[in-house]
Nucleic acid binder design. Structure first.
Lengths: 169, 169
DNA sequence: TGTTGATTGACAGTATACTTACAATATGGC
DNA sequence: GCCATATTGTAAGTATACTGTCAATCAACA
């Protein structure tokens, strides 16, 4: 909202939720990359590894729904993870369009090893707040993301995405 | 944090602050673009226009500090705004390295006209929350972004960035 | 004055994050 | 079985968001 004079100041930017979300995302990625630099893994690559670990044999389309990540971009992410030998793609016998995703041994080991570092990175993001405020912020944010799910171009579809899974391979 | 069995589940993603910030950023951009589609303006382009309006004759480096936006990427943003005739670049007489940024008449008019739409977009992002919760979330987020400012690769330098301004052109 | 070091904008490279379009393949209705 | 429709992965195009590097320029100092 502008003030009563409708004068446009930098407050139109600094106090806008959208600006704060963008800044916080920048900061979060920066902290994650810095903490995990020895593992050479980005936040999205980490999310993909966790999802593939949790749902071995998932395909790219379902993976995108599970981590709420655009399907087209995910193609590049999968490619990079494959180049780094963290995952492998296997053709499905039942559906020739589909490529099934699995962690390699190295990928599974990496995921196991990186967990404490990721936990530390996540904690660092909220560190400056008092513990009670951290809980409040997380609760409100979780609520808001959930209620706004359909507003995003790639809504999270954790459940339905996996309904038809497990019958291919 | 993982549970006591250290089993890796999707909760390692879904409950992580970093994931929530990413989701919220996706949602915020999506809402902004959707509301402002008739104006063909992105959130960052909007922030740049506001900053140039507030500080006519600013250069690209200072602009990047004022909106906490990477200097390299900002070059492309400026280029697009110039192509759309919303801003113009003029060489500085005092410093041949610098190009001074100004809104065009059309750019100023666009900025004036888009304000209500941007306000509506910003309001929509927090709409699902109760009014009291919106205030709480905004306050905590503002605090967190401020306290984490130095953690980002492009810290906000609203004040210092403008200290040496106004002597060129 | 002249040279060193900093600043500025531009560029190349990587990685999200989205759009639309397309060919190969699969599915459901007939 | 055949065909319209849908799904899947891929690719091209746009826009952030960052890393580096580089040449031109400027500023400060010996």
């Amino acid at each position: 909202m502008q003030n009563k004079n409708s004068a446009i100041t930098m407050d139109a930017v600094y106090t806008a939720p959208g600006y704060l979300f963008r800044r916080m995302q920048q900061i979060a990625v920066s902290i994650f990359i810095e903490e995990c630099r020895t593992f050479d893994l980005t936040p999205v690559q980490f999310a993909a590894l966790v999802a593939i670990h949790t749902h071995p044999g998932i395909d790219a389309t379902r993976l995108s729904a599970v981590i709420a990540f655009d399907r087209s971009t995910l193609g590049n992410v999968i490619e990079r993870l494959e180049t780094k030998h963290h995952i492998e793609r296997k053709p499905s016998r039942d559906d020739k369009r589909i490529k099934l995703l699995y962690l390699t041994k190295a990928g599974a080991a990496l995921l196991r090893d990186i967990m404490p570092t990721v936990d530390r990175a996540q904690a660092r993001m909220l560190q400056p707040l008092k513990p009670a405020d951290r809980k409040t912020l997380l609760a409100l944010l979780t609520q808001l993301v959930d209620l706004n799910n359909e507003a995003s171009r790639v809504p999270l579809r954790a459940e339905d995405a996996l309904e038809h899974l497990g019958k291919s391979g």
